[in-house]
Amino acid sequence: MKKSMRAKRMAKHRQRLNVVPKLNLVPLIDCFTLLIFFLLINYSADVEILHSDKSIKLPASISETAPGETVVITVSATDIIVSGQRVGSIADMMANTDSKFEPLETELKFLASRAAPLTEKEKAEGRPITILGDKAIPYEQLKKIMATCVAADYRNIALAVAHKEASNKVIGAGGKPASGG
């Protein structure tokens, strides 16, 4: 029996629908490999994340300079922590009338002894250190911590701050924004 053109066309169409498509995984694996390399390279940027607890409110700054990787001193309301290890309490530090805090100096000297030798630039500037403390820290506490850092040869001191955008207002005479025109 002879098939009509319509029957031939419908048979051909059904035959196309019954074929299971093949999925070629090689190009898919290549794409995922490139994506992984791209993410790894871009994710390993030169950004240091300073971990602080919720009780510490950092002061704000418009500085564009990113901090380098250093030893971090975290000053909470009750404790002084160096690189994640508690070295003493604020009460003990303030009870002592000495200009520096001995347990902090001991820990910093220990860390310096385990670190790589200083370069010529670091010998001139001192070892780098970052102080992460609440913006409401009394000046006397900050002064004693900084004096202890200097005594342990950590003279390149940075204070951690929260970044904020600079305002574009021009301040005129008298501290009021200048008028534009």
Rank of each mutant, 00 (worst) to 15 (best):
R9D: 02
M5E: 13
S83C: 10
S55V: 03
P103T: 06
T70H: 11
P27Y: 01
K169L: 15
V161E: 11
Q141H: 03
L159I: 15
N96Q: 04
A147Q: 02
K176N: 12
Q141C: 04
K2H: 08
P128R: 09
C31N: 09
G84S: 09
I157V: 15
N18H: 11
F101A: 02
S61Y: 05
E125Q: 14
V82A: 05
L34Y: 08
R155L: 05
E125S: 13
K2E: 12
G133Y: 01
V161Q: 08
K57P: 00
S55L: 03
M1T: 12
D153G: 05
K57Y: 07
A152F: 06
T70C: 09
L108F: 05
V47G: 10
A166F: 02
I80R: 00
N168C: 04
A77G: 12
V87H: 03
I171L: 15
T70N: 13
L23K: 11
V82K: 01
S113N: 13
N24I: 07
F37G: 10
M10V: 12
P138S: 11
N18T: 11
A147T: 00
L28H: 11
I129A: 04
I56M: 01
K8R: 15
D53L: 06
Y43D: 06
M5C: 04
K143E: 15
S44Y: 10
L35T: 11
R127V: 04
R14L: 09
Q15E: 13
V82S: 03
L40Q: 09
L40H: 08
D79E: 15
L159S: 07
G180V: 13
S83V: 09
E105V: 15
I49A: 10
K12I: 08
A152Y: 07
K169E: 14
I49V: 15
A136K: 08
L111K: 14
T97Y: 03
R16F: 06
A124Y: 06
V26G: 04
G172E: 01
K8S: 04
S89T: 15
I137R: 00
E165T: 13
I73C: 07
K2P: 06
Y139N: 12
P128E: 05
T70W: 04
D92Y: 00
R86Y: 04
K3L: 15
K135V: 11
S76Q: 02
